[in-house]
Amino acid sequence: MKVFHCPARHGYAVETSPFISQRVACAAAQFYGLTGCGTLLVLEETEVGLSLVRSTQWSDGLFDVSWSESNEHVLVTGGGDGSLQLWDTANHSGPLRVAKEHTQEVYSVDWSQTRGENLIVSGSWDQSVKVWDPTLSCSLATLRGHEGVVYSTIWSPHIPGCFASASGDGTLRVWDLKAGACRLAIAAHQAEILSCDWCKYDQNVVATGSVDCSVCVWDLRNVRQPVNQLRGHTYAIRRLKFSPFRPSVLASCSYDFTVRFWDYNQKQCPLLDTLEHHSEFVCGLDFSLHVPNKVVDCSWDETLKIYTPACLSAPTENHGFDTRTT
């Protein structure tokens, strides 16, 4: 395990670079995001640990980060002042552009992955979702329908112009950008939903993580009940991610200080492992897109950690997993 300490900065989100296997970005906030400034950290993994490539300050807390899918130097963050910031790791003078249309905290940003598409989606405490072009000149669309804070927005890795959002109103919504409409609304939990993610291998599978301590895996073709409900966390689930290397494996992190790994195809014992290596809320989580089973997370305990969990170290064929990469 490799650890990076960021004194007086509490981690909210991490994302590995889609271009550079050793690079990771972290969005962090001062004073637990309640007040103070934010910091964007860009780190490089070395043989001996993690080194700082760039540290940039913002006037308010930063709550999410996403790398460009077309430029290895560019990323976007979402801030507590309602703005999105576009950064270039090679430009140290400040953000390339700032867009402020949301009226409350931006809690989620995501860069589209489908071929021929280059868009950003943001979700906010103002209950709206906005879609942007990569210059952040102005939003291309504002989509409303949620009746609570929008905590999570994630593009489909399969279907252009399609993304999912999760909200404090307990619903998961699937949106069609071309139509400018919500195509599907699922009452996924009877509590706030803080995170959602799309399976990298199946366009019909989406997972949600909730304040009710459960992860629900949904087949969008039949949403009367989840494919599986994963229980084990003892506090709210802050973020979840599907593995890019194993179709039925996903990870979740929680306010219970743990990171858990699951195989949702295993109906009886889906929990693969529980890691307790943080001393505060674990808020950020991602899988490497380049190195099988490598994971990065960040916590309010002022640390970011990169590791390979033992439960995923076994050969994939032993578990019947597909070993394709994205």
Score class of each variant (00 low, 15 high):
Pro7Ile: 11
Tyr12Asn: 09
Glu15Ser: 13
Glu15Phe: 03
Thr16Ile: 09
Gly33Tyr: 03
Gly36Ile: 00
Cys37Leu: 11
Val42Tyr: 01
Glu45Pro: 04
Leu50Thr: 05
Thr56Gly: 14
Thr56Asp: 14
Gly61Phe: 02
Ser66Leu: 10
Trp67Cys: 07
Glu69Ala: 14
Asn71His: 14
Val76Ile: 15
Gly78His: 07
Trp87Tyr: 13
Asp88Leu: 08
Gly94Lys: 14
Pro95His: 12
Arg97Ile: 11
Ala99Gly: 09
Lys100Leu: 10
Tyr107His: 12
Val109Cys: 05
Trp111Gln: 00
Thr114Arg: 08
Glu117Met: 12
Val121Pro: 05
Trp125Gly: 11
Ser128Cys: 11
Val131Trp: 06
Trp132Ser: 06
Leu140His: 14
Thr153Ser: 03
Cys162Met: 12
Ala164His: 03
Lys178Pro: 00
Ala179Ser: 14
Cys182Gln: 10
Cys182Ser: 13
Ala187His: 15
Asp197Phe: 11
Asn204Tyr: 11
Thr208Phe: 02
Thr208Leu: 10
Gly209Asn: 05
Gly209Cys: 09
Asp212Pro: 02
Cys213Glu: 04
Cys213Gln: 04
Ser214Thr: 14
Cys216Gly: 01
Gln225Thr: 13
Gln225Ser: 12
Pro226Phe: 08
Val227Arg: 03
Leu230Trp: 02
Asp263Ile: 01
Cys269Pro: 07
Leu272Cys: 03
His278Cys: 02
Ser279Cys: 12
Cys298Ser: 01
Thr316Phe: 09
